[in-house]
Structure formats: C-alpha cells, structure tokens
Design a protein around this nucleic acid. Sequence first.
DNA 1: CATGAATGAGCTTTCATTCAT
DNA 2: TATGAATGAAAGCTCATTCAT
Lengths: 215, 215, 215, 215
Amino acid sequence: MAEQNILKEMFFDGEDLTEKQRQIIIAAIESFSEKGFAATSTSEIAKKAGVAEGTIFRHYKTKKELLLSIVSPVMSKLISPFIMKDLYKVIDQRYEKYEDFLRAMIYNRKEFLIKNLPVLKIMVQEIPFHDELREQFKEHVAKEIYQRMSKFVEHYKQKGEIIEMPTFSIIRFTATSIIGHVLARYVFFPEANWDDEAEIDRTIHFIMHGLAAKQ
Amino acid sequence: MAEQNILKEMFFDGEDLTEKQRQIIIAAIESFSEKGFAATSTSEIAKKAGVAEGTIFRHYKTKKELLLSIVSPVMSKLISPFIMKDLYKVIDQRYEKYEDFLRAMIYNRKEFLIKNLPVLKIMVQEIPFHDELREQFKEHVAKEIYQRMSKFVEHYKQKGEIIEMPTFSIIRFTATSIIGHVLARYVFFPEANWDDEAEIDRTIHFIMHGLAAKQ
Amino acid sequence: MAEQNILKEMFFDGEDLTEKQRQIIIAAIESFSEKGFAATSTSEIAKKAGVAEGTIFRHYKTKKELLLSIVSPVMSKLISPFIMKDLYKVIDQRYEKYEDFLRAMIYNRKEFLIKNLPVLKIMVQEIPFHDELREQFKEHVAKEIYQRMSKFVEHYKQKGEIIEMPTFSIIRFTATSIIGHVLARYVFFPEANWDDEAEIDRTIHFIMHGLAAKQ
Amino acid sequence: MAEQNILKEMFFDGEDLTEKQRQIIIAAIESFSEKGFAATSTSEIAKKAGVAEGTIFRHYKTKKELLLSIVSPVMSKLISPFIMKDLYKVIDQRYEKYEDFLRAMIYNRKEFLIKNLPVLKIMVQEIPFHDELREQFKEHVAKEIYQRMSKFVEHYKQKGEIIEMPTFSIIRFTATSIIGHVLARYVFFPEANWDDEAEIDRTIHFIMHGLAAKQ
DNA sequence: CATGAATGAGCTTTCATTCAT
DNA sequence: TATGAATGAAAGCTCATTCAT
C-alpha cells in the first residue's frame, strides 16, 4: 500500500491515466522486477491489476511498449537534476570542494533512487536486451550525465581540488563508488543495520582519500 | 571459432561430454547471454547446436537444468584462487603491501574473467530470478570470498598499511572499484583504446589514495 | 447429429456454456469414448470441435480437468433418483414386491443410461486410472447407492419377500444382473434383435427365481 | 517377489525367453495394469525392467506388439479347460446337476484368475481400443466359450435341470453372476473379510434359485 | 544380444495479441 | 473504454522408434 502511493506520485503526477492504466503499470512494475520482463506474462499482469487481458492492449500496443512506458519516464527523471538551467553557476557558488558537490548529489538522488528501485532494477536488467532502451540510456542518460559531470570534474581539477587523471577515470571511480554504496545499502543488504550518514561519509572519504593510512 | 576453443578449454577439460552435448552448451551460452534465459527457446538452441530438440532434454531434464549446468561450474572456478591451501602464507610472504596483493589478484583473475565473460554475464543477469543460483552464489562465492578477503584486509590493517575503517566497507570499496574497471573495460567500452596497464595502475592508485590532490 | 442433440439435453440444461465450449465437450466425449482418455490428443479434440487448441485450455486448465468436467456431472445425475426426499415412502406405498421395485428402477434409469452411454463408458474406463474419479465414484455413487439400496433390501427381507442372505450379496446379485443386461443390450450386442420387454422380464425373473426349473 | 514367481510360471513355462525379456514383460504388466497401455511409456518400462530402451524394441517391434504378447497367451489359457477333448463325456458323467458343473468350473478357473489378475485387467481395459484384441477375444474366447457353454446348458435344459429360457440369456445370467463374484472378491474389495466357500455357495444358490424366499 | 544417444513428430500448455460485444 | 472469448504460433517437454557401436 505504502509502495503504491509512492509509485503513484512518481508516475502519475500530471499524467492523465485512467485508474485501470495505473493498476496495470503498478502490476507490471511488480512482476517485471520480480521475474524479469520475458518471464512475465501479460495475463499475469492483467490478473494482478484486476483488469481484462484486452485492456492492457488497449493502452499499450505491445508488451514491449508497456515496458518502455515504465522505464522511459524514470530514465528521464533520473537525470533531471543534471539538466537544470544555470546548474553550473549554482554549483560554483555553493560547492567549494568536490566532496561537497558529491555529498549534495548523493542526497539529492537518494530519495529518487529509493522510490524507484523496482523500476531501476527493471531498467538495469532489460537494457542489455532491448536496443531502444540501450539507445535511450546511452543518449539521454549516460551521455548527458557524462558531459555534465565532465565539466564539474574539470572545474575541480583546475581548482586543484582533485588529482590529475583522465576525466573519464575520475567519473568512473566516483560513479562506481556511489553506485556500490546504493547497491549494498538498498539491493544486497537492505536488512542490515546501517548508519547511513556514516556510510555516506565513508564513501566520500574513500573517493577523496582512498584506503591508504595517513602517514 | 576462437571463442569456441576458449569455451572448450574452460568447460570441457576432464569432463566426458558427447560432441552434441558440447554443441548444446556452446549454443546455449551464446543465446542466453545475447537474449537472456527466459527469452531463449530450446528450439533455437537446438537449431544453433545442430541437434534435435529432444537431444537437449536427453541430457538436461529441463531448460533450467541446462542453465545451472552452465553457470555452476563457472561459479566454482571463479573463487578457486581464493580457496588455495596455504594461501595466507603465500600472500604474507609475497605481498608486503595491500596494493601488491590487489595487483596480483587483478592479474590472476583477469584471464579467467575475459574467457568467461558470456557465462558471467548470464550469471549476473539470472541470479536475481533463480533461487538456486542466488543461494549458490551467496554460499559458495560471496561468503567464501568475503571471509578470505576479510583476513587479508585485517592483516593489512594491523600492519598499518590501510586505514581504520569497517572491513566490510573496505572490501566493498575495493571490489566495486575493480569490478567497475572490468565492466568499463570489457563490457561497456571494449572497443575503446585502452592502455590496460595504466588503467590498472590508476584503479589501484584510486583505491589506495583516492582522488584528492596531494598537498 | 441425433446424438449431439441428446448430449446437449443432458449436459447443457441450465448451464451457460459458450457454443465453442459445447463443441469441445461433444468432441471430447466422442474421442475419449472411442480411443480412451490417454490416447486422445487435445489437438484432435480441437480439430473435431472446430476450435483452436488454445480455446480448450481457456475453458479447462488441463486435459484432465476437461475429463472431470465431463464425467462428474454424469456421476451426480446417475444417482439422482436414489437421493429423492421421501423416496422411502413412495417406494413403500407403490411397490409391494421387490420385483416391482426392480422393474421401476430399471425403467427409470434406462433412458438415462442409453443417453449417457458414451460418458458412462469413459467413466468406467478411466476410474481405475484417476484417483479423483475413483474417490468421487466411491463417495458419491457407490456409497450412496449402497446405503439406500440396503434400506430397501432390508425392508423387503423383513416383509419376507426375499431370502435371508447378507444384504451385500443381495445387492451384488441384483446389480450385476441388471448391469449385465445393460452391457449385453447396449454395449456388446446393440445390433441384435432384442425384445426389450421380454428380456427385462427374464432378468427380473432370474433375479427373483434363479435358473432352477420349478418342480 | 512372490508375484514374480507366479508370473514366471504362467508366462515363461516352456518358452525360451531371455532374462531381459522376462523383466520387460513383468515390468510392462505392472505398468500397463496400473496406468493403462496408452499412459505407459516404453522408457518407463525399460527403467523398471532394468534394460536399455532399445532392448525392448529388439524383442518387440512396437509397443503394441508387446501388449499383444502379454495379453494373447492369457486369452488362450483362459479358455483352455473348455477346449479339452472329450470334455462332453467327462462332464456328462461327472456332473449330474448344473450347479455341480458350475461349482467345478468356478474352482477350476479360480486359481487361474487370481494369478492373472493384472493381465486380465489389461485385457479388459484395452479390448475396447484395439481391434486385434477385440477380434481375438471374440473369435477365440467369447465364441468358443459360448458354443461350448451352449451345449452344456442345452444338455441340462433337456434333462429338466434348468428352466426353459433362451440359452443366450441363461449363459449371460450365469456368467455375470460369476464374474460379479470375482470382481467383488478380487478387484473391488480384496481386503474385506471373505468366507470364500460360503460366498461361492451363495453365488451358485443365487444362480439356481434367485432371491425369492421359499414359500 | 544389448546398449543408449539421437531423432523428429507430437504432446500439453502458454503466450501475446485481436476483435466482436 | 473495457471486456474476455478466441486465436494460432510457439513454448517446453515426451514419445516410440532407430541405429551405430
């Protein structure tokens, strides 16, 4: 129930979907993320959503279109904070250090990630098998984020905040460390007894200073 | 063809499979990793392997059993260097510093990973959807590797080589950085113009010293 | 065609089946009784019924469910005259002698048996191989009929109409004689030149007086 | 084990079957009688018999031939006492009354029936579905028995022992009563607490004198 | 004589999709 | 707009039978 409310917020704000359509999407997200796209049947979705099989195809021409209609908007929203106008100025003024910037980014995207975990799981699972998704991800997510991140990274490099190293590598190290945190925290060991703030601090410290003991 | 030879080495050393059985496994690996397990039909595998569909089921009672027979042995081999007897002594003598140990591990597993990329892709893709795989991975891969890594990490912590931080976090940071390297290098951008040695150096440097510029 | 009409009457009175569903049942009865349940394929039924194979499984989850949906209602109707309320009173008033009762029963069930011969054949053939059918038959047919027959038999025994002998044996002799008549008449030699009334008389005479010549 | 010995006696006396062949027949009888011919797979028989699948087809060209090789000899032996030479004389001298004859027949065939119950079950089950079996049964069992029984019945009718009634009916009543006994005793309620001699007496009494109380 | 790998046709069942209502 | 009966292709799997060894 709680999850359903959250999903509604994310998905249905400002969109005019019928009640049935919402049920279909909620049911599809649940099934796709539990069993995978290919292993989920439309009849199963229909049953879970409490609609007739035909109703799904009234709204989505094919099963794949249903998948895209779920994953695409989340992809768009995933990068939204990066495509703010005047982002650079804001950043420049507010975050003196790279780690301040990182912390802000992490806190900014955290809620979004938690809310959208099932859809993000579907996205990650299905990207390798669907050209449209892969294309969309590359063009509108990876590329966008990479380009904007590059600017910041180069900015902080020029300021002498961060090490001289290919920008690509810096972004990669940053990204994998943060994604690793999210996966560990929310996917692999959600039940563990986490001190979230401390773990984020550790992650940022690792990104900035690595594992070597200070001499 | 080249790939087939590699697969043969990995899979068929010392096992007595019929020629048809080998063809089935090679075909299944190809299809599963390209389209996913659920989206691959047994008739497609049969056709690709050049056998009758019935032949598959003579050797593997179900499609799932075929999947497991592909993934399980690779899982076992994945951790084999970690379960060497007297590993600790060897390590202790040979690797004075944590980064030496890391470098050795990376080079040790590199060939294995490259050779088994398709099967590892299948493994990663299917673990979320098959209890048996998940259980097997947790019990025989994750747990084993974690326990042994813990010993090393604590060893280097005591030696004052690495920072005081929860062992779990240290392992996580180390693992995600290395996995991130492998994914970038072999999965996402295999075509790029890599200077492998330099990139491994950078990865290890990042793990040890982070991104902060030296003052 | 004639047979189809009869089947419709028996099966579809008061039930709301689609036209296709009726065709499926009619085709299934024909095939099951001709070739046996296990030797009949669903594709054959579909073809004979003029529907797609998928249609069968829309209405009956499995082939076995289709079998049960055919046999079960006939089992129920088979015993219906025995479970009339106030049956005992009616009998008591109307049939002074056991043979009157027998004659009434035979004529009562005769039409039913003739109409349902194919389904009854399926029932008899498949009971040994399907636990559900066997259980259903034991609980709802054999037991019911036996209990009610017992009352009558004991009633006529007390009246001195019939011989002192275990009730079970009396019912058995009665039943096998009548069933033997039905089998001979309608199953083994339906083409023979029967004088139905005379044969029923003979059967009842045999039950009552046996084969011994009167001295 | 005990059953296996009995089966061997019945089946394998004087026939030169290999050990494997015997195992196949024993396994086939068990499976056919438990699940029916059509629902039994040859691989199942092979497994139960402890032979390779191919071995079955070395001895029996088809699955059906295996069925016939099981049922046919039992059919032949079923009527063997009826086709004794000089049977009529023997009968004439030994059995003054029809019931003496019946009793002798029942005791004569009893052991045979018990020993061959599984095969007889197969025979009864499969006759409706296999023309060869039906033909064989009609020609070599039903017809033979009917013709010989006719002679006896007419003999006893002439002697005034039994009632004036069409011979066919007399045979039918006799047969169904006896078969009913066998089914009740050995098929439907083998576990019940039977007084065999008494029940046979009752059966013969019923055949001779029916159910009417003596006035 | 016996094996068991291999076959391909056929099995029951599921599927995404259509369409008359 | 929503339904759900109907579809036919294709799914995973089983089968009786063959044949090289």
